[in-house]
Design a protein around this nucleic acid. Structure first.
Lengths: 297, 297
DNA sequence: GTCTCTGTCTACGATTTGGCGACAATGACG
DNA sequence: CGTCATTGTCGCCAAATCGTAGACAGAGAC
Protein backbone atom coordinates (compact mmCIF):
# COMPACT_ATOMS: atom_id res chain seq x y z
CA UNK A 1 0.00 0.00 0.00
CA UNK A 2 1.16 3.52 -0.77
CA UNK A 3 0.88 4.70 2.82
CA UNK A 4 1.74 8.29 2.03
CA UNK A 5 -0.77 8.35 -0.80
CA UNK A 6 -3.37 6.98 1.59
CA UNK A 7 -2.61 9.64 4.14
CA UNK A 8 -2.91 12.38 1.57
CA UNK A 9 -6.18 10.94 0.33
CA UNK A 10 -7.53 10.63 3.86
CA UNK A 11 -6.56 14.16 4.83
CA UNK A 12 -8.11 15.53 1.67
CA UNK A 13 -11.33 13.58 2.22
CA UNK A 14 -11.70 14.97 5.71
CA UNK A 15 -10.89 18.48 4.53
CA UNK A 16 -13.27 18.40 1.60
CA UNK A 17 -16.06 16.28 3.04
CA UNK A 18 -16.27 13.83 0.13
CA UNK A 19 -14.37 11.20 -1.77
CA UNK A 20 -15.33 12.69 -5.08
CA UNK A 21 -14.11 16.16 -4.21
CA UNK A 22 -10.92 14.78 -2.71
CA UNK A 23 -10.38 12.90 -5.95
CA UNK A 24 -10.85 16.02 -7.99
CA UNK A 25 -8.37 17.97 -5.90
CA UNK A 26 -5.82 15.16 -5.91
CA UNK A 27 -6.49 14.29 -9.56
CA UNK A 28 -7.44 10.75 -8.67
CA UNK A 29 -10.55 8.74 -9.45
CA UNK A 30 -13.26 8.12 -6.86
CA UNK A 31 -12.34 4.44 -6.87
CA UNK A 32 -8.72 5.25 -6.13
CA UNK A 33 -9.75 7.37 -3.16
CA UNK A 34 -12.09 4.64 -2.02
CA UNK A 35 -9.33 2.05 -2.17
CA UNK A 36 -6.84 4.26 -0.36
CA UNK A 37 -9.23 4.96 2.50
CA UNK A 38 -10.27 1.32 2.66
CA UNK A 39 -6.70 0.10 2.84
CA UNK A 40 -5.78 2.67 5.45
CA UNK A 41 -8.69 1.57 7.60
CA UNK A 42 -7.78 -2.06 7.12
CA UNK A 43 -4.15 -1.59 8.00
CA UNK A 44 -5.03 0.38 11.12
CA UNK A 45 -7.94 -1.86 12.04
CA UNK A 46 -10.08 1.22 12.55
CA UNK A 47 -12.88 2.87 10.67
CA UNK A 48 -11.80 6.43 9.94
CA UNK A 49 -14.57 7.74 7.71
CA UNK A 50 -18.34 7.45 7.95
CA UNK A 51 -19.79 7.27 4.47
CA UNK A 52 -23.15 8.82 4.03
CA UNK A 53 -24.70 9.70 0.75
CA UNK A 54 -22.91 12.61 -0.78
CA UNK A 55 -20.87 13.14 2.28
CA UNK A 56 -17.96 11.66 4.14
CA UNK A 57 -17.11 12.64 7.66
CA UNK A 58 -14.47 11.42 10.05
CA UNK A 59 -15.23 9.17 12.95
CA UNK A 60 -13.98 10.26 16.34
CA UNK A 61 -10.83 8.19 15.85
CA UNK A 62 -10.63 9.51 12.33
CA UNK A 63 -10.68 13.10 13.50
CA UNK A 64 -7.83 12.48 15.90
CA UNK A 65 -5.85 10.62 13.23
CA UNK A 66 -6.58 13.39 10.74
CA UNK A 67 -5.00 15.99 12.99
CA UNK A 68 -1.84 13.98 13.36
CA UNK A 69 -1.70 12.93 9.74
CA UNK A 70 -2.13 16.48 8.48
CA UNK A 71 0.64 17.62 10.77
CA UNK A 72 2.95 14.86 9.59
CA UNK A 73 2.32 15.63 5.94
CA UNK A 74 3.03 19.29 6.56
CA UNK A 75 6.26 18.43 8.36
CA UNK A 76 7.34 16.20 5.51
CA UNK A 77 6.68 18.90 2.95
CA UNK A 78 8.58 21.37 5.11
CA UNK A 79 11.51 18.99 5.45
CA UNK A 80 11.59 18.41 1.72
CA UNK A 81 11.43 22.13 1.08
CA UNK A 82 14.15 22.87 3.59
CA UNK A 83 16.60 20.35 2.21
CA UNK A 84 15.82 21.20 -1.38
CA UNK A 85 16.37 24.87 -0.78
CA UNK A 86 19.48 24.39 1.22
CA UNK A 87 20.65 23.09 -2.05
CA UNK A 88 17.81 24.17 -4.19
CA UNK A 89 17.26 22.03 -7.18
CA UNK A 90 19.23 23.91 -9.80
CA UNK A 91 17.50 24.86 -12.94
CA UNK A 92 18.34 26.75 -16.07
CA UNK A 93 21.18 26.25 -18.48
CA UNK A 94 24.70 25.20 -17.61
CA UNK A 95 27.23 26.00 -20.29
CA UNK A 96 30.36 23.89 -20.30
CA UNK A 97 33.42 23.98 -22.44
CA UNK A 98 35.58 20.87 -22.38
CA UNK A 99 38.57 19.57 -24.31
CA UNK A 100 37.73 17.43 -27.29
CA UNK A 101 39.42 14.24 -26.21
CA UNK A 102 38.28 14.37 -22.66
CA UNK A 103 34.80 15.27 -23.79
CA UNK A 104 34.44 12.44 -26.22
CA UNK A 105 36.08 9.83 -24.03
CA UNK A 106 35.14 10.55 -20.48
CA UNK A 107 32.51 13.20 -20.10
CA UNK A 108 29.44 11.57 -21.63
CA UNK A 109 28.48 9.04 -18.95
CA UNK A 110 29.19 11.49 -16.17
CA UNK A 111 27.07 14.16 -17.75
CA UNK A 112 24.29 11.63 -18.24
CA UNK A 113 24.33 10.84 -14.54
CA UNK A 114 24.48 14.51 -13.61
CA UNK A 115 21.44 15.15 -15.75
CA UNK A 116 19.63 12.28 -14.08
CA UNK A 117 20.33 13.76 -10.69
CA UNK A 118 19.35 17.28 -11.65
CA UNK A 119 16.62 16.87 -14.23
CA UNK A 120 15.69 20.55 -14.12
CA UNK A 121 19.02 21.56 -15.58
CA UNK A 122 19.85 21.91 -19.21
CA UNK A 123 23.44 21.51 -20.28
CA UNK A 124 25.11 23.13 -23.26
CA UNK A 125 28.44 21.55 -23.88
CA UNK A 126 31.02 22.76 -26.37
CA UNK A 127 33.94 20.46 -26.99
CA UNK A 128 36.83 22.56 -28.12
CA UNK A 129 40.53 22.49 -27.61
CA UNK A 130 40.68 26.25 -27.69
CA UNK A 131 41.27 27.72 -24.31
CA UNK A 132 38.14 29.73 -24.00
CA UNK A 133 37.70 32.49 -21.50
CA UNK A 134 34.72 31.54 -19.31
CA UNK A 135 33.84 35.16 -18.78
CA UNK A 136 34.23 36.51 -22.24
CA UNK A 137 32.93 33.52 -24.14
CA UNK A 138 29.84 32.97 -22.04
CA UNK A 139 30.55 29.65 -20.36
CA UNK A 140 29.70 28.83 -16.81
CA UNK A 141 32.63 26.53 -16.53
CA UNK A 142 35.51 25.50 -18.67
CA UNK A 143 37.30 22.23 -18.23
CA UNK A 144 40.98 22.20 -19.06
CA UNK A 145 43.81 19.79 -18.81
CA UNK A 146 46.83 21.82 -17.92
CA UNK A 147 49.86 22.01 -15.71
CA UNK A 148 49.55 23.31 -12.22
CA UNK A 149 49.70 27.02 -12.47
CA UNK A 150 48.72 30.11 -10.70
CA UNK A 151 46.32 32.09 -12.74
CA UNK A 152 44.00 35.00 -12.42
CA UNK A 153 41.22 32.64 -13.33
CA UNK A 154 39.67 30.71 -10.52
CA UNK A 155 40.04 26.99 -10.89
CA UNK A 156 39.17 23.83 -9.04
CA UNK A 157 41.31 20.77 -9.53
CA UNK A 158 39.24 17.78 -10.55
CA UNK A 159 41.70 14.98 -11.01
CA UNK A 160 45.32 14.40 -11.94
CA UNK A 161 46.16 13.53 -15.52
CA UNK A 162 49.18 11.37 -15.91
CA UNK A 163 51.12 11.44 -19.14
CA UNK A 164 53.24 8.72 -20.63
CA UNK A 165 55.81 8.43 -23.39
CA UNK A 166 54.75 5.75 -25.81
CA UNK A 167 54.95 4.45 -29.36
CA UNK A 168 53.96 1.44 -31.37
CA UNK A 169 56.06 -1.71 -31.00
CA UNK A 170 56.64 -1.55 -34.76
CA UNK A 171 58.29 1.84 -34.31
CA UNK A 172 60.67 0.47 -31.70
CA UNK A 173 61.48 -2.49 -33.91
CA UNK A 174 62.58 -0.18 -36.65
CA UNK A 175 64.20 2.58 -34.60
CA UNK A 176 65.16 1.03 -31.31
CA UNK A 177 63.72 1.86 -27.94
CA UNK A 178 64.94 4.94 -26.03
CA UNK A 179 66.40 4.00 -22.67
CA UNK A 180 66.96 7.46 -21.25
CA UNK A 181 65.32 10.76 -21.98
CA UNK A 182 68.27 12.04 -24.00
CA UNK A 183 67.76 9.18 -26.45
CA UNK A 184 64.57 10.93 -27.50
CA UNK A 185 66.59 13.59 -29.34
CA UNK A 186 67.32 11.01 -32.01
CA UNK A 187 63.70 9.93 -32.36
CA UNK A 188 60.70 11.30 -34.11
CA UNK A 189 58.29 12.93 -31.72
CA UNK A 190 54.64 13.60 -32.12
CA UNK A 191 54.11 16.84 -30.29
CA UNK A 192 51.15 18.48 -28.74
CA UNK A 193 50.66 22.12 -29.55
CA UNK A 194 49.48 24.72 -27.08
CA UNK A 195 51.05 23.10 -24.02
CA UNK A 196 53.40 25.31 -22.06
CA UNK A 197 56.21 22.87 -22.72
CA UNK A 198 55.57 23.56 -26.40
CA UNK A 199 58.04 21.64 -28.47
CA UNK A 200 60.31 20.88 -25.57
CA UNK A 201 59.62 17.88 -23.38
CA UNK A 202 60.50 17.91 -19.72
CA UNK A 203 61.04 14.55 -18.10
CA UNK A 204 62.07 14.12 -14.50
CA UNK A 205 63.63 11.14 -12.80
CA UNK A 206 65.86 10.19 -9.96
CA UNK A 207 68.71 11.80 -11.88
CA UNK A 208 66.98 15.13 -12.14
CA UNK A 209 65.12 17.06 -14.84
CA UNK A 210 65.69 16.52 -18.53
CA UNK A 211 64.72 19.07 -21.13
CA UNK A 212 64.54 17.48 -24.52
CA UNK A 213 63.84 19.01 -27.82
CA UNK A 214 62.87 15.97 -29.80
CA UNK A 215 62.82 15.89 -33.56
CA UNK A 216 59.16 16.52 -33.95
CA UNK A 217 57.40 15.59 -37.14
CA UNK A 218 53.90 16.38 -36.02
CA UNK A 219 52.52 19.08 -33.80
CA UNK A 220 48.80 18.98 -33.23
CA UNK A 221 46.50 20.20 -30.51
CA UNK A 222 44.63 16.93 -30.17
CA UNK A 223 46.00 14.01 -28.24
CA UNK A 224 43.74 11.46 -29.89
CA UNK A 225 45.27 12.29 -33.22
CA UNK A 226 48.72 11.93 -31.67
CA UNK A 227 47.71 8.55 -30.32
CA UNK A 228 46.39 7.37 -33.65
CA UNK A 229 49.53 8.48 -35.47
CA UNK A 230 51.69 6.83 -32.82
CA UNK A 231 49.75 3.60 -33.24
CA UNK A 232 50.66 3.68 -36.91
CA UNK A 233 54.30 3.72 -35.94
CA UNK A 234 55.03 7.27 -37.04
CA UNK A 235 56.72 8.44 -33.88
CA UNK A 236 56.82 8.73 -30.12
CA UNK A 237 54.08 10.59 -28.36
CA UNK A 238 53.75 12.13 -24.93
CA UNK A 239 50.06 11.90 -24.18
CA UNK A 240 47.65 11.45 -21.29
CA UNK A 241 47.37 7.90 -20.09
CA UNK A 242 43.58 7.91 -20.30
CA UNK A 243 43.80 8.59 -24.01
CA UNK A 244 46.26 5.81 -24.56
CA UNK A 245 44.63 3.34 -22.20
CA UNK A 246 42.89 1.13 -24.71
CA UNK A 247 45.84 1.07 -27.08
CA UNK A 248 48.14 0.17 -24.20
CA UNK A 249 45.84 -2.59 -23.13
CA UNK A 250 45.62 -4.02 -26.64
CA UNK A 251 49.36 -3.77 -27.28
CA UNK A 252 48.94 -1.26 -30.07
CA UNK A 253 51.09 1.11 -28.01
CA UNK A 254 53.85 0.49 -25.50
CA UNK A 255 55.02 2.86 -22.83
CA UNK A 256 58.70 3.61 -22.36
CA UNK A 257 60.86 5.46 -19.85
CA UNK A 258 58.78 4.32 -16.88
CA UNK A 259 61.29 5.80 -14.45
CA UNK A 260 60.64 9.27 -15.79
CA UNK A 261 57.58 11.42 -15.53
CA UNK A 262 56.42 14.49 -17.32
CA UNK A 263 55.25 17.43 -15.23
CA UNK A 264 51.86 16.49 -13.84
CA UNK A 265 48.85 17.79 -15.56
CA UNK A 266 45.42 17.92 -14.05
CA UNK A 267 41.90 18.42 -15.14
CA UNK A 268 40.71 21.77 -13.88
CA UNK A 269 37.35 23.37 -13.81
CA UNK A 270 37.78 27.05 -14.51
CA UNK A 271 35.01 29.42 -13.64
CA UNK A 272 34.43 33.12 -13.33
CA UNK A 273 35.83 34.66 -10.17
CA UNK A 274 32.48 35.88 -8.98
CA UNK A 275 31.78 36.20 -5.29
CA UNK A 276 29.23 33.42 -5.20
CA UNK A 277 29.67 30.49 -7.49
CA UNK A 278 26.26 29.66 -8.83
CA UNK A 279 24.70 26.58 -7.32
CA UNK A 280 24.53 24.72 -10.58
CA UNK A 281 28.20 25.31 -11.33
CA UNK A 282 29.22 24.24 -7.86
CA UNK A 283 27.07 21.11 -8.07
CA UNK A 284 28.54 20.25 -11.43
CA UNK A 285 32.09 20.70 -10.25
CA UNK A 286 31.42 18.76 -7.07
CA UNK A 287 29.90 16.05 -9.18
CA UNK A 288 33.00 15.87 -11.36
CA UNK A 289 35.24 15.71 -8.30
CA UNK A 290 33.12 12.95 -6.89
CA UNK A 291 33.14 10.94 -10.08
CA UNK A 292 36.63 11.59 -11.36
CA UNK A 293 38.36 12.12 -8.05
CA UNK A 294 38.23 8.41 -7.47
CA UNK A 295 39.50 7.52 -10.88
CA UNK A 296 43.14 6.75 -11.31
CA UNK A 297 43.55 9.68 -13.72
CA UNK B 1 8.23 6.48 -6.06
CA UNK B 2 7.33 4.96 -2.72
CA UNK B 3 8.28 8.05 -0.73
CA UNK B 4 7.74 6.42 2.64
CA UNK B 5 9.80 3.44 1.58
CA UNK B 6 12.54 5.79 0.45
CA UNK B 7 12.45 7.62 3.76
CA UNK B 8 12.68 4.39 5.71
CA UNK B 9 15.55 3.23 3.53
CA UNK B 10 17.34 6.55 3.91
CA UNK B 11 16.92 6.64 7.67
CA UNK B 12 18.13 3.07 7.97
CA UNK B 13 21.16 3.77 5.77
CA UNK B 14 22.18 6.69 7.95
CA UNK B 15 21.61 4.71 11.13
CA UNK B 16 23.48 1.64 9.96
CA UNK B 17 26.21 3.27 7.90
CA UNK B 18 25.77 1.12 4.79
CA UNK B 19 23.35 0.23 2.05
CA UNK B 20 23.94 -3.46 2.53
CA UNK B 21 23.19 -3.42 6.27
CA UNK B 22 20.14 -1.23 5.74
CA UNK B 23 18.93 -3.79 3.22
CA UNK B 24 19.42 -6.62 5.64
CA UNK B 25 17.51 -4.85 8.38
CA UNK B 26 14.71 -3.82 6.06
CA UNK B 27 14.73 -7.18 4.23
CA UNK B 28 15.39 -5.50 0.91
CA UNK B 29 18.13 -6.06 -1.64
CA UNK B 30 21.10 -3.71 -2.01
CA UNK B 31 19.82 -2.63 -5.39
CA UNK B 32 16.45 -1.72 -3.92
CA UNK B 33 18.15 0.43 -1.29
CA UNK B 34 20.35 1.99 -3.94
CA UNK B 35 17.33 2.86 -6.05
CA UNK B 36 15.37 4.29 -3.14
CA UNK B 37 18.21 6.56 -2.08
CA UNK B 38 18.94 7.60 -5.64
CA UNK B 39 15.32 8.46 -6.31
CA UNK B 40 15.03 10.39 -3.07
CA UNK B 41 18.11 12.40 -3.96
CA UNK B 42 16.82 13.04 -7.44
CA UNK B 43 13.39 14.12 -6.27
CA UNK B 44 14.90 16.49 -3.70
CA UNK B 45 17.66 17.65 -6.01
CA UNK B 46 20.13 17.10 -3.22
CA UNK B 47 22.82 14.59 -2.50
CA UNK B 48 21.98 13.03 0.86
CA UNK B 49 24.52 10.22 1.13
CA UNK B 50 28.22 10.10 0.36
CA UNK B 51 29.14 6.67 -0.85
CA UNK B 52 32.57 5.47 0.01
CA UNK B 53 33.79 1.94 -0.13
CA UNK B 54 32.00 -0.17 2.45
CA UNK B 55 30.48 2.87 4.05
CA UNK B 56 27.75 5.38 3.48
CA UNK B 57 27.52 8.59 5.45
CA UNK B 58 25.16 11.52 5.24
CA UNK B 59 26.12 14.79 3.68
CA UNK B 60 25.51 17.89 5.75
CA UNK B 61 22.13 18.33 4.09
CA UNK B 62 21.53 14.62 4.50
CA UNK B 63 22.15 14.76 8.25
CA UNK B 64 19.65 17.55 8.64
CA UNK B 65 17.10 15.71 6.51
CA UNK B 66 17.74 12.50 8.43
CA UNK B 67 16.83 14.14 11.73
CA UNK B 68 13.55 15.40 10.36
CA UNK B 69 12.74 12.22 8.47
CA UNK B 70 13.40 10.00 11.49
CA UNK B 71 11.16 12.24 13.59
CA UNK B 72 8.38 12.10 11.01
CA UNK B 73 8.54 8.32 10.75
CA UNK B 74 8.36 8.03 14.52
CA UNK B 75 5.38 10.36 14.64
CA UNK B 76 3.62 8.34 11.98
CA UNK B 77 4.16 5.10 13.86
CA UNK B 78 2.91 6.76 17.03
CA UNK B 79 -0.16 8.09 15.25
CA UNK B 80 -0.90 4.66 13.82
CA UNK B 81 -0.45 3.03 17.22
CA UNK B 82 -2.63 5.60 18.95
CA UNK B 83 -5.51 5.27 16.52
CA UNK B 84 -5.25 1.49 16.37
CA UNK B 85 -5.49 1.24 20.11
CA UNK B 86 -8.15 3.87 20.54
CA UNK B 87 -10.53 1.84 18.46
CA UNK B 88 -12.76 -0.42 20.47
CA UNK B 89 -10.76 -3.40 19.49
CA UNK B 90 -12.42 -6.38 17.82
CA UNK B 91 -13.51 -8.80 20.44
CA UNK B 92 -14.84 -12.29 20.66
CA UNK B 93 -13.40 -15.59 19.61
CA UNK B 94 -11.53 -16.25 16.43
CA UNK B 95 -11.38 -19.90 15.50
CA UNK B 96 -8.50 -20.95 13.28
CA UNK B 97 -7.57 -24.28 11.81
CA UNK B 98 -4.00 -24.60 10.55
CA UNK B 99 -1.76 -27.44 9.34
CA UNK B 100 0.33 -29.10 11.99
CA UNK B 101 3.79 -28.29 10.67
CA UNK B 102 3.04 -24.75 9.74
CA UNK B 103 1.29 -24.21 13.01
CA UNK B 104 4.11 -25.50 15.14
CA UNK B 105 6.87 -23.84 13.18
CA UNK B 106 5.62 -20.53 11.93
CA UNK B 107 2.29 -19.54 13.40
CA UNK B 108 3.17 -19.02 17.06
CA UNK B 109 5.14 -15.76 16.88
CA UNK B 110 2.69 -14.24 14.44
CA UNK B 111 -0.27 -15.15 16.56
CA UNK B 112 1.50 -13.70 19.57
CA UNK B 113 1.93 -10.39 17.79
CA UNK B 114 -1.65 -10.45 16.55
CA UNK B 115 -2.87 -11.00 20.08
CA UNK B 116 -0.71 -8.12 21.27
CA UNK B 117 -2.27 -5.85 18.71
CA UNK B 118 -5.84 -6.99 19.42
CA UNK B 119 -5.89 -7.90 23.10
CA UNK B 120 -9.69 -8.13 23.25
CA UNK B 121 -9.71 -11.09 20.91
CA UNK B 122 -9.53 -14.70 21.96
CA UNK B 123 -8.11 -17.18 19.55
CA UNK B 124 -8.96 -20.86 19.34
CA UNK B 125 -6.48 -22.63 17.15
CA UNK B 126 -6.74 -26.25 16.06
CA UNK B 127 -3.68 -27.67 14.39
CA UNK B 128 -4.79 -30.48 12.18
CA UNK B 129 -3.74 -31.83 8.85
CA UNK B 130 -7.30 -32.75 8.04
CA UNK B 131 -8.88 -30.43 5.52
CA UNK B 132 -11.69 -29.06 7.62
CA UNK B 133 -14.68 -27.28 6.18
CA UNK B 134 -14.74 -23.76 7.65
CA UNK B 135 -18.52 -23.60 7.50
CA UNK B 136 -19.42 -27.04 8.72
CA UNK B 137 -16.72 -27.41 11.32
CA UNK B 138 -17.23 -24.03 12.90
CA UNK B 139 -13.98 -22.27 12.06
CA UNK B 140 -13.71 -18.67 11.08
CA UNK B 141 -10.73 -19.36 8.91
CA UNK B 142 -8.76 -22.39 7.81
CA UNK B 143 -5.17 -22.19 6.72
CA UNK B 144 -4.03 -24.68 4.10
CA UNK B 145 -0.90 -25.34 2.12
CA UNK B 146 -2.02 -26.54 -1.26
CA UNK B 147 -1.48 -26.24 -4.97
CA UNK B 148 -3.19 -23.48 -6.87
CA UNK B 149 -6.70 -24.66 -7.46
CA UNK B 150 -10.11 -23.42 -8.23
CA UNK B 151 -12.50 -24.18 -5.43
CA UNK B 152 -15.97 -23.29 -4.33
CA UNK B 153 -14.46 -22.13 -1.08
CA UNK B 154 -13.31 -18.57 -0.89
CA UNK B 155 -9.60 -18.29 -0.33
CA UNK B 156 -6.94 -15.64 0.06
CA UNK B 157 -3.38 -16.47 -0.91
CA UNK B 158 -0.99 -15.67 1.93
CA UNK B 159 2.43 -16.69 0.66
CA UNK B 160 4.09 -19.08 -1.72
CA UNK B 161 5.53 -22.31 -0.33
CA UNK B 162 8.52 -23.67 -2.16
CA UNK B 163 9.37 -27.36 -1.98
CA UNK B 164 12.74 -28.99 -2.33
CA UNK B 165 14.05 -32.50 -2.83
CA UNK B 166 16.53 -33.36 -0.10
CA UNK B 167 18.15 -36.08 1.96
CA UNK B 168 20.91 -36.52 4.49
CA UNK B 169 24.49 -36.54 3.20
CA UNK B 170 24.86 -39.98 4.80
CA UNK B 171 22.09 -41.23 2.53
CA UNK B 172 23.88 -39.94 -0.55
CA UNK B 173 27.11 -41.50 0.59
CA UNK B 174 25.49 -44.91 0.74
CA UNK B 175 23.17 -44.68 -2.27
CA UNK B 176 24.60 -42.05 -4.55
CA UNK B 177 23.13 -38.69 -5.41
CA UNK B 178 20.38 -38.43 -8.06
CA UNK B 179 21.42 -36.16 -10.92
CA UNK B 180 18.18 -36.07 -12.85
CA UNK B 181 14.60 -36.65 -11.77
CA UNK B 182 14.44 -40.12 -13.29
CA UNK B 183 17.22 -41.23 -10.95
CA UNK B 184 14.72 -40.91 -8.12
CA UNK B 185 12.97 -44.09 -9.28
CA UNK B 186 15.88 -46.08 -7.90
CA UNK B 187 15.90 -44.29 -4.57
CA UNK B 188 13.84 -44.56 -1.44
CA UNK B 189 11.36 -41.76 -1.16
CA UNK B 190 9.63 -40.40 1.88
CA UNK B 191 6.26 -39.40 0.61
CA UNK B 192 3.65 -37.01 1.85
CA UNK B 193 0.09 -38.27 1.94
CA UNK B 194 -2.96 -36.22 1.03
CA UNK B 195 -1.20 -34.02 -1.54
CA UNK B 196 -2.74 -33.97 -5.00
CA UNK B 197 0.42 -35.46 -6.43
CA UNK B 198 -0.02 -38.30 -3.98
CA UNK B 199 2.70 -40.86 -4.41
CA UNK B 200 3.82 -39.52 -7.74
CA UNK B 201 6.27 -36.64 -7.80
CA UNK B 202 6.15 -34.04 -10.52
CA UNK B 203 9.37 -32.14 -11.17
CA UNK B 204 9.76 -29.58 -13.91
CA UNK B 205 12.90 -28.26 -15.51
CA UNK B 206 14.24 -26.87 -18.74
CA UNK B 207 13.72 -30.29 -20.31
CA UNK B 208 10.04 -30.41 -19.42
CA UNK B 209 7.92 -32.14 -16.79
CA UNK B 210 8.94 -35.36 -15.11
CA UNK B 211 6.44 -37.62 -13.38
CA UNK B 212 8.24 -39.99 -11.11
CA UNK B 213 6.83 -42.74 -9.00
CA UNK B 214 9.64 -43.18 -6.54
CA UNK B 215 10.06 -46.27 -4.43
CA UNK B 216 8.40 -44.93 -1.37
CA UNK B 217 9.06 -46.47 2.01
CA UNK B 218 7.13 -43.95 4.07
CA UNK B 219 3.95 -42.06 3.39
CA UNK B 220 2.87 -39.64 6.09
CA UNK B 221 0.80 -36.49 6.16
CA UNK B 222 3.30 -34.51 8.16
CA UNK B 223 6.34 -32.94 6.57
CA UNK B 224 8.17 -32.56 9.85
CA UNK B 225 8.16 -36.28 10.28
CA UNK B 226 9.41 -36.64 6.72
CA UNK B 227 12.19 -34.18 7.51
CA UNK B 228 13.22 -36.00 10.65
CA UNK B 229 13.27 -39.37 8.89
CA UNK B 230 15.24 -37.88 6.03
CA UNK B 231 17.78 -36.45 8.49
CA UNK B 232 18.27 -39.97 9.77
CA UNK B 233 19.26 -41.06 6.30
CA UNK B 234 16.21 -43.15 5.58
CA UNK B 235 15.38 -41.70 2.20
CA UNK B 236 14.77 -38.71 0.00
CA UNK B 237 11.99 -36.27 0.83
CA UNK B 238 10.10 -33.63 -1.10
CA UNK B 239 9.11 -31.11 1.52
CA UNK B 240 8.53 -27.40 2.00
CA UNK B 241 11.72 -25.40 2.27
CA UNK B 242 10.60 -23.70 5.44
CA UNK B 243 10.38 -27.04 7.15
CA UNK B 244 13.82 -28.09 6.00
CA UNK B 245 15.47 -24.71 6.49
CA UNK B 246 17.27 -25.37 9.78
CA UNK B 247 18.43 -28.80 8.71
CA UNK B 248 19.70 -27.39 5.43
CA UNK B 249 21.55 -24.65 7.25
CA UNK B 250 23.14 -27.08 9.67
CA UNK B 251 24.08 -29.57 6.96
CA UNK B 252 21.85 -32.29 8.34
CA UNK B 253 20.05 -32.22 4.99
CA UNK B 254 21.24 -31.38 1.50
CA UNK B 255 19.07 -30.28 -1.39
CA UNK B 256 19.43 -31.91 -4.79
CA UNK B 257 18.06 -31.37 -8.28
CA UNK B 258 18.28 -27.59 -8.03
CA UNK B 259 17.38 -27.21 -11.69
CA UNK B 260 14.01 -28.79 -11.10
CA UNK B 261 11.02 -27.54 -9.21
CA UNK B 262 7.91 -29.16 -7.86
CA UNK B 263 4.54 -27.57 -8.64
CA UNK B 264 4.26 -24.46 -6.50
CA UNK B 265 2.26 -24.63 -3.35
CA UNK B 266 0.95 -21.70 -1.39
CA UNK B 267 -0.48 -21.02 2.01
CA UNK B 268 -4.14 -20.07 1.68
CA UNK B 269 -6.61 -18.70 4.14
CA UNK B 270 -9.98 -20.24 3.46
CA UNK B 271 -13.08 -18.60 4.86
CA UNK B 272 -16.84 -18.79 4.49
CA UNK B 273 -18.17 -17.05 1.41
CA UNK B 274 -20.35 -14.65 3.36
CA UNK B 275 -21.10 -11.23 1.99
CA UNK B 276 -19.21 -9.36 4.67
CA UNK B 277 -16.15 -10.98 6.07
CA UNK B 278 -16.11 -10.31 9.77
CA UNK B 279 -13.69 -7.66 10.89
CA UNK B 280 -11.69 -10.00 13.04
CA UNK B 281 -11.24 -12.52 10.24
CA UNK B 282 -10.28 -9.84 7.80
CA UNK B 283 -7.80 -8.35 10.27
CA UNK B 284 -6.27 -11.75 10.92
CA UNK B 285 -5.89 -12.58 7.25
CA UNK B 286 -4.48 -9.15 6.45
CA UNK B 287 -2.09 -9.61 9.36
CA UNK B 288 -0.89 -12.92 7.94
CA UNK B 289 -0.39 -11.40 4.49
CA UNK B 290 1.56 -8.55 6.03
CA UNK B 291 3.79 -10.85 8.04
CA UNK B 292 4.30 -13.74 5.67
CA UNK B 293 3.96 -11.97 2.38
CA UNK B 294 7.55 -10.74 2.48
CA UNK B 295 9.09 -13.92 3.80
CA UNK B 296 10.87 -16.14 1.34
CA UNK B 297 8.23 -18.90 1.75
C1' DG C 1 47.51 -11.21 -5.33
C1' DT C 2 43.21 -13.05 -3.91
C1' DC C 3 38.99 -12.89 -1.53
C1' DT C 4 35.04 -10.69 0.00
C1' DC C 5 31.93 -7.14 0.45
C1' DT C 6 30.33 -3.05 -1.36
C1' DG C 7 27.13 -0.01 -4.44
C1' DT C 8 25.44 0.51 -9.24
C1' DC C 9 23.04 -0.98 -13.11
C1' DT C 10 20.08 -3.74 -16.28
C1' DA C 11 16.57 -6.98 -17.28
C1' DC C 12 12.61 -9.06 -15.90
C1' DG C 13 8.81 -11.23 -13.28
C1' DA C 14 5.73 -10.03 -9.58
C1' DT C 15 2.94 -6.77 -7.48
C1' DT C 16 0.61 -2.54 -6.97
C1' DT C 17 -1.55 1.49 -8.84
C1' DG C 18 -5.26 3.71 -10.71
C1' DG C 19 -8.93 4.18 -14.18
C1' DC C 20 -13.15 2.46 -16.48
C1' DG C 21 -17.57 1.07 -16.18
C1' DA C 22 -21.35 -1.18 -13.85
C1' DC C 23 -24.05 -1.02 -9.90
C1' DA C 24 -26.91 0.35 -5.89
C1' DA C 25 -28.11 4.12 -2.87
C1' DT C 26 -30.06 8.53 -2.12
C1' DG C 27 -30.78 13.65 -2.04
C1' DA C 28 -32.43 17.40 -5.07
C1' DC C 29 -35.83 18.88 -7.98
C1' DG C 30 -39.96 19.38 -10.77
C1' DC D 1 -43.72 10.45 -6.45
C1' DG D 2 -40.71 9.79 -10.41
C1' DT D 3 -36.58 11.18 -12.52
C1' DC D 4 -32.01 12.77 -12.57
C1' DA D 5 -27.46 13.40 -10.98
C1' DT D 6 -24.02 12.36 -7.93
C1' DT D 7 -22.18 9.43 -4.68
C1' DG D 8 -19.08 5.30 -3.01
C1' DT D 9 -18.01 0.40 -3.97
C1' DC D 10 -16.31 -3.29 -6.69
C1' DG D 11 -14.33 -6.23 -10.43
C1' DC D 12 -11.42 -6.17 -14.21
C1' DC D 13 -7.44 -4.83 -16.65
C1' DA D 14 -3.53 -2.10 -18.55
C1' DA D 15 0.23 0.59 -16.99
C1' DA D 16 3.55 1.61 -13.71
C1' DT D 17 6.38 0.44 -9.94
C1' DC D 18 8.65 -2.72 -6.90
C1' DG D 19 12.26 -5.59 -5.82
C1' DT D 20 15.38 -9.33 -7.02
C1' DA D 21 19.08 -11.78 -9.51
C1' DG D 22 23.16 -11.40 -11.46
C1' DA D 23 26.98 -9.03 -13.60
C1' DC D 24 30.27 -5.62 -12.89
C1' DA D 25 33.89 -2.58 -11.04
C1' DG D 26 36.07 -0.71 -6.93
C1' DA D 27 38.53 -1.27 -2.84
C1' DG D 28 39.69 -2.85 1.93
C1' DA D 29 41.24 -7.01 4.48
C1' DC D 30 44.18 -10.67 4.73
Amino acid sequence: MDKLGSLRAFVKVVESGSFAEAGRQLRLSRSAISKYIGELETSLGVQLIVRTTRHASPTEAGQRYFERAASILAELDAADQAVSQSQSAPRGILRVNAPMSFGTMRLGPVVADFMARYPELQLQIVLSDDLLDPVQDGFDVTLRIAELESSSLVARRIMPVERIVCAAPSYFERHGKPQVPDDLRRHTSLTYGFLLTGNQWKLSGADGDHWIQPAWSLCVNNAEVLRDVAIKGQGIALIPRFIAADALASGALAAILPDYTAPPLALYAIYPPTRHLSVKVRLFIDFLVERFGKDAG
